[in-house]
Simulated assay, not measured.
Amino acid sequence: MTTALADADRRTALAWQVQSLLLDYPDGRLRERLPLLCRAAENLPCEVGGPLLTLCSHLDTTPPAALAADYVDTFDHRKRFSLFLTYFRHGDTRARGMALLRFQHAYRVAGYRIAPTELPDHLAVVLEFGATVDFEAGRRLLTEYRAGVELLRLGLREHGSPWFAVLESLSRTLPKLSRRERALVARIAENGPPEEEVGLGPYSAASPAGPAARAQGGATV
C-alpha cells in the first residue's frame, strides 16, 4: 500500500480513491458509501473536491433507476466515453494489446491483482492502484495516457454527463497537457481511434465495457 507520501501526494491519492469509487456502477453499495465519499471530498482542495461533491449530490438525489440507466447508456453503449484508457490511443488493435500488458506488468510488480475478466486499463482500476498500492506507478500510467483522460473529460462535458465531474477533478491532479498531447487529443477527436480489428491477445475475452471490478482486497476511503 502507498505509504510515506508528501502531503500533496497524500491528498492526490485520496482524490484518486474517491474518484475511483465514484466511477463504479451506481448501485446500493455506492449509495451506502456516499456520506463517507462526501466527507473525504470535503477534505480535498476545493478545485479537486468541489466537482466530486457535485457528483455526490447528484447521486444522492437522483432515483436509483435513473442513475443506473444513465450510467449504462453513457459508459456501456458509447465507445466515445470508454473508461479504458488505451482505447483512445490504440482502438481495438494489436498495439492496444501490447499496451495492456504494460499495465498488467506494473500491477504484477506491485503485487496487485485484479479480477481475471477485467481489463487492466479501466480508469477506476488504475486510480485505485495509484491510490492504495503504488502512487508513483499509478501516476506514471495516468500521465502516459493523459490524452485519453482529456478526451474522456471533453466528451463527458459535451454530453452534459454528471460523471464529467470525476474527470474534471482528476485532470486537476495531473500535469497539464503538453503540446504533443494536445495535438494527439485534436487528432483523435477529429478522426477517432484506430479501427484495425485484430483482437487484444490475452485480453480479447475480457469484458469490453461496464463497471470496474473491484481489485481483490479493494479500496476503502
Rank of each mutant, 00 (worst) to 15 (best):
I114P: 09
P51Y: 13
Y87G: 05
A165K: 03
Y145C: 04
F84M: 09
R78I: 11
R96A: 07
A106N: 02
M1H: 15
G155D: 02
A8W: 14
R94W: 12
A186M: 08
C38Q: 15
R214T: 12
A147Q: 07
L22Y: 12
P211T: 14
A8N: 14
F81N: 11
T62P: 10
S57E: 14
T61R: 13
A40T: 13
A41P: 08
T220F: 15
Q104N: 10
Y71K: 03
H90C: 09
P64Q: 13
A106F: 00
Y145K: 02
S161P: 02
P175V: 02
F81Y: 13
L167Y: 05
W16H: 08
A183M: 06
K176M: 08
R80H: 10
Y25R: 02
G199M: 08
D134N: 12
P208G: 01
D76S: 04
L23E: 07
A137L: 07
R140D: 07
N191Q: 12
F88M: 08
D73E: 14
A137G: 10
G192L: 06
Y87C: 05
P162V: 00
R39W: 12
L177Q: 05
L30N: 05
L52H: 14
R182C: 05
T12I: 14
R153V: 02
R31G: 09
R180F: 08
I188N: 01
R108H: 11
G218K: 13
L67K: 00
L37V: 09
P26E: 00
T132W: 13
G91D: 05
L156V: 04
